[in-house]
Design a protein around this nucleic acid. Structure first.
Length: 517
DNA sequence: CTGGGGAGGGGGCCC
DNA sequence: CGGGCCCCCTCCCCA
């Protein structure tokens, strides 16, 4: 009996040991499986986050492009990254880019990003866009509003914490899985300040911006404007002068760059074509235009199929409204408006409600006989074609073509005796100015104009007044001056009899005093 | 202070 | 290529 009891005791003991072992084994298996499962869940969660961020980036990009095509507004933006102590910052001088930590496939949710709104009163989320080419001190090329207040969604609010808002853990909207070569199509966070509160810039659409910058870039674009104009979303902070081709010889707005300024007046760039090589197209546009005009119109007739030969227009649609500071007067410094000729033409094109591209030939073909909308004006806002059209419509020049001037201008039908004269004349319509001053980047359509202009720089004044020793750089100015001594006033007002030495004085006088006439 | 006019100087364009 | 004219702009003077 006792043996029986001992046996049972041993059995029970063994059973307990076995049971414990089994439980331990089971627990171990469960733990292992659970660990694996948890690991898988974690991986899945990470993947989900990464996908969500990609989706957010795409949404942001789409929204930005939508805003890009619509009315832009200016916004000042600075992204501030608070997680600098994590060591993600990779300092490269003043231009720092964040590099994800080794082994991190995604950004952690606890990596906060704050947006310094500047004034602190706005909740607009904005992104400062930098050009890939703009790593220098003037690297900031465009500032763009990322989202408007109303467009902001919760996801974005979570991703980018605004100011001191303490919502869900913010996540940097950064895709670190992209290859470096693709960076221009994605967003990235770039630190531009070495301060503890490192300033971040979200760099997006570098390609587009680069093209835009190239489009806007002229030799005079390095003058930063300390007072960017409000009201425009895309502020070419360092390139507000980019649309200006001309600067006066007084050095006030001397350009410093070496870009081919011709692109600013020979192309109109369509957003759809923005990836095209502008310079190439500019050259083509200019060259083909001349070749075309010489070859076709030297025949003295306008081919009805001419539009088929015209090179495809490259339209430059400056993103959004033209900032008020792009007014030519503001950028010429001294108020002179020389050089506004094709700008006016461009602006007319850009404000064309049809949004279509019009070459001068198109304009000529499609123009309303009265409307001046599509026609360029000269440097003083005059309608460039007034004279030519008046001549053409008046029949004087047309008759001139009859008198042996068989080479006709394609725009105004004016006749010339040789193709070269037609080409020079047509620069008047096309805005082409192949003669550029090496000292101030002024451009001229005629070599003689350039030569005359360069006397400004040389100080040459070969014409002296025989009566007062005054000297002049131009003979016509001397001639005008001589009227001071002679008292010659050949222009009389037909209304009051007042006489003037210059026709323009008479005209101004009549405008001021006889404006009702 | 303001407006008109003169003078000078610049670019555009044609001959 | 120079001459010439036009127009515009700015500065200045003066009533």
């Amino acid at each position: 009996m006792a043996n029986c009891m001992g046996f049972h005791t041993q059995i029970a003991s063994v059973m307990e040991v076995l049971a414990n072992a089994a439980v331990t084994e089971i627990c171990k298996l469960v733990d292992d499986d659970y660990a694996v499962l948890r690991l898988e869940i974690t991986q899945s969660q990470k993947e989900n986050r990464a996908l969500r961020r990609k989706l957010q980036l795409l949404e942001v990009k789409v929204a930005r492009e939508r805003v890009f095509a619509s009315r832009p507004r200016s916004v000042k933006i600075v992204d501030r990254y608070r997680g600098i102590e994590r060591g993600e910052g990779h300092l490269t001088g003043s231009h720092r880019s964040f590099v994800k930590p080794a082994g991190h496939s995604t950004w952690r949710d606890d990596q906060p990003i704050t947006v310094d709104e500047g004034s602190g009163t706005s909740t607009q989320h904005v992104i400062l866009i930098e050009s890939a080419e703009a790593a220098g001190p003037e690297g900031l090329s465009l500032v763009k509003q990322e989202r408007s207040e109303g467009e902001e969604d919760q996801r974005h609010s979570r991703d980018i914490q605004t100011g001191a808002a303490a919502g869900a853990p913010p996540v940097a909207t950064v895709d670190h899985t992209i290859a470096p070569a693709q960076l221009w199509t994605r967003s990235r966070i770039t630190e531009v300040s070495g301060t503890p509160n490192a300033v971040l810039k979200s760099e997006t659409d570098i390609k587009t911006l680069t093209v835009t910058q190239r489009l806007l870039h002229t030799g005079s674009d390095h003058r930063s404007d300390p007072d960017p104009a409000p009201g425009s979303e895309y502020l070419p902070v360092c390139h507000q002068n980019q649309r200006m081709r001309h600067s006066r010889g007084d050095g006030d707005t001397l350009a410093t760059g070496g870009d081919d300024l011709s692109c600013s007046y020979t192309t109109e760039m369509d957003p759809g074509n923005i990836s095209l090589d502008l310079e190439t197209q500019t050259d083509l546009s200019r060259r083909d235009w001349n070749q075309y005009s010489s070859s076709v119109y030297s025949e003295g007739r306008l081919d009805e199929k001419g539009e088929g030969l015209v090179k495809d227009e490259v339209t430059t649609k400056v993103e959004g409204d033209i900032p008020p500071t792009w007014n030519a007067d503001n950028h010429l410094g001294d108020g002179h408006s020389q050089g506004r000729d094709f700008l006016n033409y461009r602006e007319r094109l850009e404000t064309n409600p049809n949004g279509s591209t019009h070459s001068p030939l198109h304009a000529f073909r499609d123009r309303d006989p009265v409307s001046t909308l599509m026609w360029p004006s000269d440097s003083h806002g005059r309608f460039l074609f007034d004279r030519a059209r008046a001549q053409a419509q008046g029949g004087g020049e047309t008759s001139g073509s009859i008198k042996g001037k068989r080479f006709l201008c394609m725009f105004c039908n004016k006749g010339f005796s040789c193709p070269q004269k037609v080409e020079i004349h047509q620069r008047f319509h096309t805005g082409e100015k192949p003669f550029s001053c090496t000292q101030c980047h002024m451009h001229f359509a005629q070599a003689g104009d350039l030569k005359r202009h360069q006397r400004i720089h040389t100080g040459e004044k070969p014409y002296s007044c025989p009566q007062c020793e005054k000297r002049f750089s131009r003979q016509d100015h001397l001639k005008m001056h001589l009227k001071v001594h002679t008292g010659e006033r050949p222009f009389a007002c037909t209304h009051c009899g007042k006489r003037f030495s210059e026709r323009s004085y008479l005209r101004i006088h009549q405008e001021k005093n006889h404006s009702t006439l």
